[in-house]
Structure formats: C-alpha cells, structure tokens
Amino acid sequence: MTPTSNIAIQCLGYTPIPVALLSCDEVPRVDLYRKDAETGRLRLYRAAEVPMLPEDLTRLEQSKVGWLYTPEADHGEMQVYIRRKLDQLVGDNSISVRERFGRLNEVVSGILESTFEAGETDEVMQSSAYVASQAIKLLCQNEMTAGDLISLLHHDYQTVTHSLNVAYMMVTLAREMRLVSDSELFAVAVAGILHDIGKLSVSERILNKSQRLQRREERVAQKHPAHGFRRLCERTDISFAQLMVVYQHHERMTGKGYPVGAVGEEIHPWARLCSVVNVFESLVSNRPYRRRYPLTEAFQIMDGPLSAGLDREMYECWKQLILKK
C-alpha cells in the first residue's frame, strides 16, 4: 500500500483548501469562499486580489473554520499544494510536535471525511495510507505523550473522527508494548483507520440515531465487521493482521463478542489491541444518545464487567499509559 492519494476532493465543483495549511506568504491567488455555518451555503470570503493577513488566519482559526473553498483552482495542482504543505508542516521543527499534530489532525480529518462519504474503497485505502504515513512521523516522537494525544483529539462521534482516534491510540499502545517493530506501526495505523470501514454499508439513520438502538437495529449495526471483511478480503494491499482488525475488533476474550464469538487466542493480537482502545475511545467521545465520560469515569466503567472481555495486559498497559503523570 503506497501512501499516495487524491487528497483534495472536489465538492460540488469547489475545491477545499485547509485553513491549517495556509500562510500569509503563500495563499493560492484565487477567490476563496467560506461555508455558512447555518445554511451550509458557500459565500465569497476573499477575492483573489485581496491579500491574506495574519489576523485573518487568526480569526478563521478562532471561529473553528477548517476549510475554505475555491471554484478556480486546478484540482491536480491543489492536491500537490496540500501534500507539499503537509510535508512542510510535519517536518517543521520550529513548531512543537504537539502543535504540528493538532494542525495535521484538522487537515486529515477533512481528507478522510470526504473519501469516506464517497464510499469508494480504493480511495479510502489510498487516503488511509497517506494519513497514516504522516501521522506516524509525529506519533513516534518521544515528545508526544499519550496525554498530549488525548487532549488533542476531537471527541465528536463520527465514523471518521472515531476511526482516526482509534488509529492514533493503536499506534501509541502498540509502540508502548513493543507489539510490533517500528516499521510495522504504519500498518497498525492503517488498520485502525480502516477498522470501521464496514459502517459504510450501514444506514446513517442507525449510526446517528439519538436514542439507544432497538435490538433489530443492533443486529444490523453488528454486521459492520462482516461488511468490512467482505469489502477488503480480496484486496492484495491489505495484510491478514489488518483484515483481522476489521473483522474481529468487536470480539471478546470471553467469547461474548461478535461477529462469530471468537475466544481468547482465536482473536488476533492486533484486533485485541484495537478492542481496548475502541472501547476506551467510545466512552470518552460524545455519542448521539449521551455525552462523553471523563477519563476516570471511563476507566471505572472499563474496570467493571467490560474488562473480562478485553486483553488484560493490553488494557492495564493502556490505563497506566493514560493515567500516568
């Protein structure tokens, strides 16, 4: 799997430009549009001939505007621009690792959201590889702690946000436990991003329901590991370990998981790793039917009946990694 992708996705004829990658000395000389928060419509924000000032970028960031849009940029040229700016950001040692990761996460969330919405497996695979290759460069620096990571993540419940968070956490835990070599951490990150790809085959109505699912709806939602397996199993650019993350991340050591009720060592180590952080991430993120739990409360819940289904060593390592000062 090569870390390349169409990372600038056209949206209704407009090409998105990530605000986190803009600098006053290098803004594309095109008309820039901003999406209205209430109506979703694009409105002219800055004409091509008007320079971008530092205070403009500050206001955009304070307003949590992540993307501007242009109808005029060459699509291929914009992909090159975004990739080059991301490379510069990740390699900019004048900025702290924490700040670089925060900016990177803003951009790659938008990249993956576009590709997941399109639902094309090839595009999802390529974007996942690109995102993983960039994230690994920062996650593997000792300056980046697990506490830093948790504080920088978004906690809204969307498939893309959740998948990215799980991927970052999987890398952090795998690295701490020395579960894989450093060269394999890229593959672990990709597996984390892809673990819920089967949800592309589940209705948005079920995924975003604001009340707890009825039993019939639960059965539909619980088919997503099998959907993901079928979507990926014949591809040559995914490993067995990555495929097992997709298929087994809801299996439990006690045999009370799904889709097949695998027990203990029948569950691949990478899938057991994913299970631990997947449960944790779900608890500390907002859900359509509840608010996120604070860290201490999340671990209290995981210390209860949930813990029997998780790999004990992996769970204890993750808990210590998050709670240590």
Rank of each mutant, 00 (worst) to 15 (best):
residue 69 Y to R: 09
residue 70 T to H: 08
residue 91 G to P: 04
residue 77 E to T: 03
residue 82 I to Q: 14
residue 81 Y to W: 13
residue 72 E to W: 10
residue 88 Q to S: 13
residue 84 R to L: 06
residue 88 Q to D: 15
residue 82 I to A: 08
residue 84 R to E: 03
residue 89 L to V: 06
residue 93 N to M: 10
residue 77 E to Q: 00
residue 97 V to S: 03
residue 67 W to D: 06
residue 74 D to S: 10
residue 93 N to C: 07
residue 81 Y to A: 08
residue 76 G to T: 14
residue 77 E to G: 00
residue 94 S to M: 11
residue 67 W to L: 10
residue 73 A to M: 07
residue 90 V to R: 06
residue 67 W to C: 05
residue 88 Q to Y: 14
residue 70 T to L: 04
residue 77 E to N: 07
residue 78 M to S: 07
residue 91 G to L: 04
residue 72 E to R: 11
residue 83 R to C: 12
residue 91 G to S: 12
residue 77 E to F: 00
residue 79 Q to C: 15
residue 84 R to G: 05
residue 84 R to K: 09
residue 96 S to R: 11
residue 91 G to W: 02
residue 88 Q to T: 15
residue 70 T to R: 04
residue 83 R to A: 08
residue 95 I to D: 02
residue 73 A to T: 02
residue 80 V to D: 14
residue 76 G to S: 15
residue 82 I to F: 02
residue 94 S to G: 09
residue 79 Q to H: 12
residue 84 R to F: 09
residue 82 I to D: 02
residue 88 Q to H: 15
residue 75 H to M: 08
residue 84 R to W: 04
residue 70 T to G: 13
residue 82 I to M: 12
residue 90 V to G: 12
residue 77 E to Y: 01
residue 89 L to Q: 04
residue 84 R to P: 04
residue 73 A to V: 06
residue 94 S to P: 07
residue 75 H to I: 12
residue 71 P to L: 01
residue 86 L to G: 06
residue 89 L to C: 06
residue 85 K to V: 01
residue 81 Y to R: 10
residue 85 K to A: 10
residue 89 L to M: 04
residue 72 E to P: 12
residue 74 D to E: 15
residue 69 Y to L: 11
residue 71 P to N: 00
residue 79 Q to P: 00
residue 71 P to K: 07
residue 84 R to T: 08
residue 78 M to W: 00
residue 77 E to A: 08
residue 87 D to I: 13
residue 91 G to V: 02
residue 75 H to E: 14
residue 76 G to W: 14
residue 98 R to H: 09
residue 85 K to M: 11
residue 98 R to S: 05
residue 92 D to H: 09
residue 70 T to S: 15
residue 93 N to D: 12
residue 72 E to Q: 15
residue 78 M to N: 08
residue 77 E to R: 05
residue 79 Q to D: 14
residue 79 Q to F: 05
residue 80 V to T: 08
residue 67 W to E: 05
residue 94 S to L: 05
residue 82 I to P: 02
residue 93 N to K: 08
residue 76 G to A: 14
residue 76 G to C: 12
residue 77 E to D: 04
residue 98 R to A: 07
residue 82 I to W: 03
residue 91 G to Y: 01
residue 69 Y to S: 07
residue 68 L to Y: 00
residue 89 L to K: 02
residue 79 Q to S: 12
residue 73 A to I: 03
residue 69 Y to M: 07
residue 86 L to H: 00
residue 77 E to H: 05
residue 98 R to V: 13
residue 85 K to Y: 10
residue 82 I to Y: 01
residue 72 E to A: 14
residue 91 G to D: 11
